[in-house]
Computed example of a mutant assay.
Amino acid sequence: MTDVLLVLTDEMLHADLARCSAAAGYTMVTGDPTSCRHEWLRATAVAVDADALADLAESHPPRRPGVVVISGAANDSRGWQAGLALGAQGGFVLPDEETSLVGALSEFRAPVRKPAGAVAIIGGHGGAGASSLAAAVALAAADRGERILLLDADQAGAGDDLILGVENHRGLRWSDVTGETGVIAGTALRAALPRVGRISVMTSDRDDVTPLRPDTVLAVVDAARSAGDLVVADVGRNPDPVSAGLLDTADFAVIVTTASVHAVAATRRTAARLIGEREAVLVVRGPSAGGLRACDVADAVGLPLLGGYRPEPALAARCEGSGLRLRRRGPLTVAAHDVCRRLRAEAVR
C-alpha cells in the first residue's frame, strides 16, 4: 500500500507540502480537521498547522505517531504548543525546512505495530439480529484465543450484557467513563469491565438513557485497540456522531438483515444513511417467505454478500437462561466465523 501524508493545513502551505510529500515517497491527501478521523487513523503521517490543531482539540483524536506541525512563520508558538499536547513528533517552518521535513517523513515510513482490528455491526432494520451476531462474533473470536471488547453503542437495544448473561456482573458502564480524561489505558479498562472468558463488555446501565458522548466512545475504542483487544461494536441505526465515529474507526461494517421485501427497503435506507463510501458487507438471515435468496437481497440492497444463515432454534431461550453460547455447527456460529475470517483478511492487507 502507498504511504499517505494527510495534510490538515492552510492551502498556502499545500504546494510546499506537495514537494516534501513527493520527495519522501508519499501520496498527499488533504482533509478536513473537523471530520478526518478515518484518514487520521490510516495515514502514515499527518501534517497539521495551528488552525487545524485547534479544530482537532475539539474532536479528541487518539494519539498516534507520525504527526508534524507545519508553519509558514517561525514565531508561530501557538502551533508548537498545541502540537506538543497532541503528541507531535516535530515542527517545521516551510519552505525553509523542507529538507528536514522530508527526512522526518522518511523515518515515519518504518514499520509500526498495527492496532487490533475493529468491526461495526448494524441492524438493517429493527429485529434483524445485529446484537446476537455481534455477541456471536465476540465469542467466535475469543474461541481463537483473542481478547475482545464487545462495545454496545446501540442505546435502542436491550443490552449486549443480557445476551451474554453478564448483566449482573460488577464493572464499569458507559456512565462511569468520560472521554474528558483524555487517553484511557487499555489494560486498566479491560480489568474494570464486566467479562465472560476473554470478552469484556462495555454497555449502559439498565435504565440509563443519557446519550453517549462520541469522545467517550472513541476513547474506549482506541484504548482497547492499542492494548491489542479486537473491538466488536454493536452500532445503532441513527446517523449520529457516535455511529459515524465507530464506522470511521472500523476496518469494515457488517449490516444484518432478513430476507423480505420490507427488510430490503429498510436496509437500503439504513445503508444510505450510515455507510456512504465506507466499506461494508451484508449478512442475510433467512428463510424468506417470498422465496428471496440471500444473493437477491444483497443485489437489491447494493452491498456485497458476506453470507447468510437460518434462525437458530431456541436461541432466545438459551440467551435468557445462561447467556449466548455458540453451538459448534449452528447457523449463527457459521455466520460469526464468516465475519471473523473477513477480520483476519483485513489484518493482513
Rank of each mutant, 00 (worst) to 15 (best):
L105D: 13
V67C: 12
R341C: 05
V48H: 07
C20P: 01
A289V: 02
L306C: 11
A158R: 05
V67A: 14
V68L: 01
L101S: 03
D76G: 12
E312M: 09
R349H: 04
A227Y: 00
A142K: 09
G83T: 00
D160T: 07
S71T: 15
A24F: 07
L84T: 13
M28W: 07
A104T: 08
N75Q: 12
R237M: 09
L172Y: 05
V235N: 02
V67H: 11
H60F: 14
A253M: 03
S35W: 07
E277D: 13
G91I: 05
L305P: 05
P115Q: 15
D160Y: 00
E320G: 14
V48E: 12
V68K: 00
P287M: 09
A24D: 05
D205V: 01
P115H: 14
V209E: 05
E279N: 09
P214M: 12
T9P: 09
D76A: 05
S21D: 03
R78D: 13
D208N: 10
T30I: 14
R64Y: 04
V334Y: 07
V283G: 10
V102N: 10
P287D: 10
L282D: 09
F92W: 10
S260T: 09
R328S: 15
R144T: 13
A300S: 12
V220H: 05
D51L: 06
S35E: 14
G31R: 06
D152Q: 11
L274S: 13
G291W: 06
A52R: 12
G321R: 05
D207H: 09
R237Q: 11
G302W: 10
G179D: 12
R225N: 02
V334N: 08
V221E: 03
L162D: 09
E146Q: 09
T203V: 13
A317P: 00
Y309Q: 01
T270E: 11
V348Y: 03
S77Y: 08
T210L: 09
D152S: 06
L53C: 12
A223R: 06
T178R: 02
L332Y: 08
D338P: 06
V297K: 08
Q81Y: 07
G157D: 11
V281Q: 06
C295E: 11
A300C: 03
A156Y: 04
D16H: 15
G127P: 11
A266T: 06
L326I: 03
R327K: 13
L41R: 12
R285I: 07
T270H: 07
G87E: 09
G126S: 15
D296P: 00
R64M: 06
T333V: 05
H262V: 07
I184G: 02
V137F: 08
A130C: 04
D51I: 06
D208V: 02
S131V: 09
R109L: 00
R328H: 14
G321T: 07
V235I: 00
S132Y: 10
A128G: 06
G321H: 01
W40M: 10
L315N: 05
R109W: 02
N168K: 14
N168I: 01
S204R: 15
M1R: 15
E39W: 11
M12S: 15
A250G: 00
P287Y: 08
L303T: 04
P311R: 10
A300Q: 13
I163S: 03
V334L: 10
A185V: 14
D51Y: 02
A153R: 01
K114R: 15
R285D: 05
S106I: 02
D96Y: 10
A54M: 10
L193G: 11
M202S: 01
T30P: 04
R113A: 13
A316D: 12
K114T: 15
